[in-house]
């Protein structure tokens, strides 16, 4: 707030005062008053007005500057009306009132959508939960009636299961609420579980698997991490090349633990690389393999962000996924 702007704002008052002074002078002059007395009166009027404008300007400038500074520092800008400094001039009170009312309205609107979103998520969770019963039942049936046919069905059932799982995690990742528990988890257990799930592919496609020093504890949510690693391994298996090999190992640093999943598959083209985490992006590999939805890695990135894990994917003679678990910060958060 500049003084000149302030004066422009007060232009009518200034004009009126000048008019008043001119009229007063003319009246006093016509009453044949002493020139000095007229000068004194005019001087006094101006003095009072200058003091009045200046003090008003300072008060307002202080108020608005304070408010703007507060706004800047505030993470949740919605709270500004709670923090506006107390003053005795009417504008500030009105401003406070306006902000309060508009914020209230906005928050109510937001809550309405939050609730809708929550309901939707709950519906999806329920649905996923329901569909798993017939899925389990079908899976058991295939195991109890072994044949070429049931083997084929088994493979399709596994695919259905993967898609159902994807819906669930998509719903979970989109919702603001926090439905994961970060605790100490053995990386080895999580990885073993995921690998076991892909046993069939590993054995049939004769993929060489190298696991090294995985006996490490990290802070994460088991179910989410399982999903993340599962996506990466699914991709590695999907895009294998000759003499397939997948190597999983750990790099322990002072401040973090890096989990590295490396394969010697067809890799990702360098111009696709920056966009692999984008929603719906399938890249040239995906387009050649029409089962790609472009959701898998998008979810991986999103879940990683929520868990505060970092994920990078590099590609050079195969693909290398690196998940970083910070050691210090999260432990403190838990404590």
């Amino acid at each position: 707030m500049k003084f000149i702007d302030y004066l422009k704002d007060k232009i009518i008052e200034i004009v009126l005062i000048n008019l008043f002074v001119i009229i007063t002078t003319l009246i006093l002059y016509s009453l044949k008053c002493n020139g000095w007395i007229i000068f004194d009166i005019v001087f006094l009027i101006y003095l009072v007005e200058i003091i009045n404008f200046t003090s008003d300007y300072i008060k307002r400038k202080k108020f608005y500057n304070n408010t703007l500074n507060l706004l800047e520092d505030l993470d949740n800008k919605n709270l500004i009306h709670e923090l506006i400094p107390e003053t005795n001039f009417i504008d500030s009170k009105i401003l406070k009132e306006i902000l309060y009312e508009t914020n209230k309205y906005k928050i109510e609107e937001i809550n309405k959508y939050k609730n809708k979103e929550k309901e939707f998520k709950e519906f999806i969770e329920m649905w996923v939960h329901e569909i798993k019963t017939p899925l389990s039942s079908a899976m058991l049936t295939t195991y109890n009636n072994k044949s070429k046919l049931s083997d084929d069905i088994k493979i399709e059932l596994d695919k259905i299961d993967a898609y159902v799982q994807q819906v669930l995690f998509y719903a979970r990742s989109e919702v603001v609420s926090k439905d994961y528990i970060i605790k100490q988890v053995s990386l080895e257990n999580v990885i073993n579980k995921v690998i076991l799930k892909h046993k069939r592919d590993f054995l049939l496609k004769k993929i060489n698997l190298e696991l090294k020093d995985l006996d490490t504890i990290v802070n994460t949510d088991t179910k989410w991490l399982e999903y993340i690693i599962d996506q990466i391994i699914t991709n590695s298996i999907k895009y294998i090349d000759e003499n397939p090999k997948i190597k999983i190992y750990i790099k322990q640093n002072k401040n973090d633990v890096k989990l590295i999943i490396e394969d010697n598959g067809i890799g990702i083209k360098s111009n696709d690389l920056p966009r692999i985490f984008d929603k719906g992006f399938t890249g040239s590999n995906g387009r050649n393999n029409n089962t790609s939805t472009g959701i898998g890695l998008y979810l991986v990135k999103k879940l990683c962000n929520k868990l505060k894990h970092n994920i990078e994917i590099e590609s050079e003679n195969g693909t290398k996924a690196i998940i970083t678990f910070p050691v210090g910060s999260l432990t403190n958060e838990i404590k």
Binding site: V128, E130, T133, Q165, L168, Y180, K183, D221
Partner: peptide, 10 residues
């Protein structure tokens, strides 16, 4: 269970 989350397991 068909509810696959950490909370339930715990």
């Amino acid at each position: 269970t068909s509810r696959n989350n950490e909370m339930d397991e715990l």
